[in-house]
């Protein structure tokens, strides 16, 4: 009998609880900084330790040597680090593209925002490649008609140092286009061009809408970071330079 009382009482109490509205009295908000004055939880440290060691071992592997530091802010128009990335994409993607399609890559366009770190003087390691390109983006070769290629050069007129390779763009003093070359030749109507870029830009990233609706496209399944790692492994010295591929007269 007592058990029954309890149950009923509990039911009624719950009902009463629902009836008597819960009232929000006060709200207090603060941002708490995670600083080195806080102790480190040992369980977390122990869990991370073996992964950390493995990553550090891999990342410290020396792939090449850079005599000088290069930053993407040394632009405008073209930067040594951007030129290196675009040239690496051309050099290493073209054999894969050619073996798959029989065609050659005519030019490369990457984005300035995609250079995520400086190339520091000294040992070029696996970590350098991860710092410059932490994202998983991969190379895609897009076949564009002549008008789309002209749209591409018009986009580049803004002067932002988006990395290019095997192409030339010269702007006049009033930022008008003075000269454009793809694979050493002027753009010809009726011809199509194979431009290598990354999948982010192919989807219209950074407003590069000229990559939409291409004549054809070839996904290489080759990450931009892997291109850099392979490029660093191939070269002993990484000493890119600024040149006249994209300049203002």
């Amino acid at each position: 009998m007592f058990k029954k009382f309890c149950l009923l009482g509990l039911l009624l109490a719950l009902f009463a609880c629902k009836e008597s509205q819960v009232t929000l009295n006060a709200i207090e908000g603060t941002q708490l900084a995670i600083t080195d004055s806080l102790p480190q939880d040992q369980q977390v440290l122990d869990y991370i330790a073996p992964f950390k060691k493995h990553i550090n071992d891999e990342m410290s592997a020396v792939l090449a040597y850079a005599p000088q530091s290069h930053s993407k802010t040394e632009g405008p128009y073209n930067t040594a680090i951007g030129n290196m990335m675009a040239d690496a994409v051309l050099e290493l993607s073209n054999p894969i593209f050619k073996s798959r399609t029989g065609h050659e890559i005519d030019g490369v366009l990457l984005n300035h925002g995609g250079i995520r770190s400086t190339l520091n003087a000294g040992d070029v390691t696996m970590r350098t490649a991860y710092d410059i390109m932490p994202f998983e983006n991969s190379i895609i070769v897009v076949e564009l008609n002549a008008d789309k290629v002209r749209d591409m050069f018009n986009y580049l007129k803004s002067g932002k140092a988006h990395p290019i390779a095997n192409m030339q763009l010269i702007l006049g003093e009033d930022d008008s286009i003075v000269k454009t070359l793809v694979n050493g030749k002027p753009i010809e109507d009726g011809k199509t061009y194979f431009i290598a870029t990354n999948d982010y830009l192919r989807q219209g990233g950074d407003g590069m809408v000229f990559f939409e609706d291409p004549v054809s496209e070839t996904v290489l399944n080759y990450k931009v970071r892997s291109v850099l790692i392979d490029y660093f492994k191939e070269k002993d010295t990484i000493a890119p330079v600024r040149d006249n591929r994209f300049i203002k007269e």
Partner: peptide, 29 residues
């Protein structure tokens, strides 16, 4: 990047008979 942790405390009272609108709560930020 886990530089900060946000903290918001909500204080409720139960069994209060008069129903207060939400804004009546005192917000301290």
């Amino acid at each position: 990047a886990g530089i900060n942790l946000g903290r918001i405390d909500f204080e409720f009272s139960t069994a209060s008979k008069e129903s207060k609108p939400v804004d009546a709560a005192v917000i301290t930020v």
